[in-house]
Amino acid sequence: MNEELFISGRDNLNIDPVLHIWHWQIPVYLFLGGLAAGLLFFASLYTIQNKDKEYRTAVKIAPFLAPFALILGLIALFLDLKHKLFFWQLYTTIRLESPMSWGAWTLMIITPLSMIWAASYIKEIFPNWDWKFKWLIQFDKWVVKNRKVFAWLNIYYAIILGVYTGILLSAFNARPLWNTSLLGPLFLVSGLSTGAATIMWMSKDQAERKMFSKIDLILIGIELFFIVHLFMGFLASSQVQIEAANLFLGGEYTAMFWIFVVGIGLIIPAVLETLELLGKHIPVFVPATLILIGGLVFRFIMVDAGQVTRYLY
């Protein structure tokens, strides 16, 4: 038998023995970013399709959460920076090679867009709101008139934001678990699913709830399909990626991933939503919370496990 012993004299903080440079801030941001992307996607989609009357919660109410989610996410990102006072350096350059650079610019654009979207519905929801300034009233009128343009901008940036949360990770060469282009679509679908679950939860309208239940079921199906393909891809790849997959197929993340992400976050809510559609009464917050918890845990596991995987030499 050939054994190999590896002894390193390096002991840098947060690098050794296992890389752990990203803590809770990054998964929290990835979750909030995905959620905001999901909320804005559905709001814009149904505006473009002229269904804003049928899906009132999706178009007019749920998007109020998006700016808050984005701002909390940005705060988390800021807390993660270790050279905080230099954060503005992000906005002195655009580096297309670096997903983090165009992600930072995407956030710079979509955060104000989400605020404008939410603010333009204040009048409809709180008719007695006093706007005080004339230019604000005019700006509001202009936004309402150009609603479709804003919807197109929003849907475009929401998709970029959703994909970005995954691509951010897959751009890092050194972490085999992240080195897959599937991560972008997987994080996008997961983000849309958390958005749909939130809308379903907030909606008081039976028809809208049913619709988002159905959407969520489809998204969960796609997510499961992606997860299976993720592991198939890893297992057919190089040794470092086989080892990355094995963390979830018998390794230390197995129980956490399959119970919390796949079981509680995907399969149980899918079963509950199917029962609901078949006519059984299930309190809507149960599947919705489970999906949100699953989405959050998924991001924590991916960020944490990714940092464990590395090249061996």
């Binding site: 690098i15 890389l19 440079i21 270790k82 050279h83 230099f86 350096q89 992000l90 983090m100």
Partner: peptide, 25 residues
């Protein structure tokens, strides 16, 4: 003075050759 300490380079290095200096960069 251009480094924001985001850790992207640390994540991307297969040799783990970079570290976060106590001053942040």
């Amino acid at each position: 003075n251009e480094c924001i300490g985001c850790g992207a380079c640390i994540q991307s290095c297969p040799y783990d050759a970079r570290y976060s200096h106590p001053e942040g960069y």
